[in-house]
Nucleic acid binder design. Structure first.
Lengths: 228, 228, 228, 228
DNA sequence: CATGAATGAGATTTCATTCAT
DNA sequence: AATGAATGAAATCTCATTCAT
């Protein structure tokens, strides 16, 4: 359940490495089912098949292994998504593929939701790190797409948070609550919402792409809300 | 901080009623700052200025007062939002007003986020109830708007979850993390995303926005999403 | 075994007060026999006849009760000695009475030695406070005696430490090791050593007492220093 | 810091011998700074630069190495003092030189105090052995001096304990607490106290201080202790 | 000789809850 | 209605020691 982090060998023998991995896997399982506060070190070591004291040979505290778990999960998830959209060029296509990849990943790591979300309670900084890191990559991609005129010229961070929110609730509703991927209809409705939210209006951004004027017949110029 | 629930008097004297309210208010504060597991009954009774044993005169357990808190908060929030959009007719206007109302409410009840989200860990059913109840009302409103042609004919529940996700992350990003309302630019970008996501496409009938009545029963056939 | 500190009631009921006292008495016994590190909270609560958790109702930690014990013991001992020499005028007489009082006190509080000395390991500051406080009173008395010409004009603190050392080892040798008061001969030899160490030589200090030359032939004028 | 015990080779190779010595030196340092109970085997092995298991190749237990340390320190100290007074004839001169040597030794072995005193807690018999051995030698020297009339005819053991007490507190006050040798004034005051405590009274033969040789075999009849 | 992984007993401390007053 | 003393189960963490390599 967790071959997430192959590296970070701090001078362990092969055997030690294996034990450590068993503990990490056990922790993912136990934290996922019993929650952080409901999970005791004994639960983890029993699940890993080692003695209680062995835990402390590899981790200084319950919090430490939890943090490592969240970090590993975060890295693995971002890596997985990145690989899934590699090669795609169109941002809307990337969006679609990325969200599917996200859903697939959380489906596979069925405890990711429980673990990451509990981080908010257990270690708020870690939790923020998780989303900020995600948002950063997301924003960068969107900003690039904006430049290319693939998506509307909106604040990239705002879009990133909006999209993360949509995906998060999509995954919560179906993967977390029903333990299944979203029905196609639901998924498509969601994607449609996103795509229309992102897609450049024919009349805006024109400039972006060469300074051309918008075609006539324009509907809803909803632009200038000159606020602030 | 919590005159949320005036009712539910189970045969208490005026004094008893006051003590109970003090305990509820204390619990909101204490759970909000120290988290559920970090908060002890002693913390709550001290904050309320009563003796330890007094707690159990009013609540059967720590979990019970937490549940009641979440329920009260949920009810108060939905009531607040409903009032804020009462009288509005246009769905996009409702959306905008509703999200502003949401932001205002969580800004005022600064612990709402922490408390509600921790419910996921403490009592998962309660947590789902919270969002399902919200989604139900949301979906109903959207379905109506779809019927009226004010928004695209997408699955109402899907839209509701997408919108809840966007709002949730908006509030998290600014109110929870920065303890302030979102900057106008950020807010508008988010609203713009939402509005384009919801608004009927110009080519779905265009008329919508010209003051024309929506055609009855029209269903938006989620159109060409060209991508590759 | 410990009615040492009657005061310091921090808002406890009579019953609570009694429980606290039982714990203090139990701690004196348990620390005395099993040593600080050998004594567990369970040992103490069992000796006191209360449940484990009860300990923490009255003391925040094992260290706290230990500290309080040492402080109480120190105060009681100094009070006891002070009372024993009250009314005496001659310093050598005071010395003798004081040391006898010390021996009697440690004989009665048979664990005082073990407890106080272990303080050096457990809380070094506390240990130093113990001896510094003792030394301060001791020095003051000796300085006064020097002024009166009752003892030789030596640095008072040096004498105080020397005398504390002698007493400490006397008590260790007999009370701690043999659980008895020193044999008279041993005690008298020790006192003789001290007295000669302190007693003014006929040829020194003369000036001290008013510029008068020491009377001829007089041996040890140590007598009438009436004043005050 | 500890080339105290060169011998006791139980069939070790040169390399083993070196490892053992490193462990001893590490133990002195670690016990001295962290105390017996605060020091773990890991602390010692880390300080010695060997693996945890290596410790048990050379010592059967934590207690064992502690005992050996105390024994070595005791032997080294007595040897050092003996050498320092070798050749001296006058007991008062011996006393002075011996105490200076003691102070110098504990100054050099700055952890001696902490280690030896903690022995009282860790292994009471060892602790008594330490002082009894010291007292035995001390008493013998004093008894001889009494016979020679160099010091008053008091019980030798009583004098020995009194002198050990004085020295012990002198070292504690300055070396242990201030990490320095006592100021000369303080030292001289202490020596003066001791010398007058020991020196035969002028009326016991008076000659002592006039450069006259003491009469052979004289026994001081511990004189008038006039107290009330 | 040396290593370092593994053990498990045990210690301190927390805290929701009960109950007599 | 209110109090606060008492409980005991449970949790985290430490560490001396053993053992296979």
């Amino acid at each position: 359940m967790s071959t997430l982090s192959p590296g970070r060998n701090g001078g362990l023998t092969r055997k030690g490495e294996a034990t450590r991995a068993r503990l990490m896997a056990a922790a993912e399982e136990v934290f996922g089912t019993k929650r952080y506060h409901g999970a005791s070190i004994v639960d983890i070591t029993q699940a890993a098949g080692v003695a209680q004291g062995t835990f402390y040979v590899y981790f200084p505290s319950k919090l430490a292994i939890f943090r490592e778990l969240v970090t590993d999960l975060s890295n693995a998830m971002r890596r997985h998504i990145a690989q899934s959209v590699a090669g795609l060029d169109d941002r809307l296509a990337i969006e679609r593929a990325g969200i599917r990849a996200f859903i697939a990943f959380v489906k596979k790591h069925k405890y990711l939701y429980r673990i990451v979300r509990e981080a908010e309670t257990v270690d708020e900084d870690l939790y923020r790190w998780y989303y900020r890191t995600l948002a950063k990559g997301y924003s960068a991609g969107l900003a690039q797409a904006v430049e290319r005129g693939q998506v509307r010229a909106l604040d990239a961070e705002a879009m990133a948070f909006a999209l993360m929110g949509v995906s998060d609730f999509l995954g919560m509703r179906w993967v977390l609550w029903e333990d299944r991927e979203p029905p196609e209809a639901f998924f498509e409705a969601t994607m449609s919402f996103i795509e229309d939210g992102l897609r450049p209006n024919r009349d805006d951004g024109g400039a972006k792409r060469g300074g051309l004027a918008a075609e006539e017949g324009r509907v809803d110029p909803r632009p200038r809300r000159p606020r602030r």
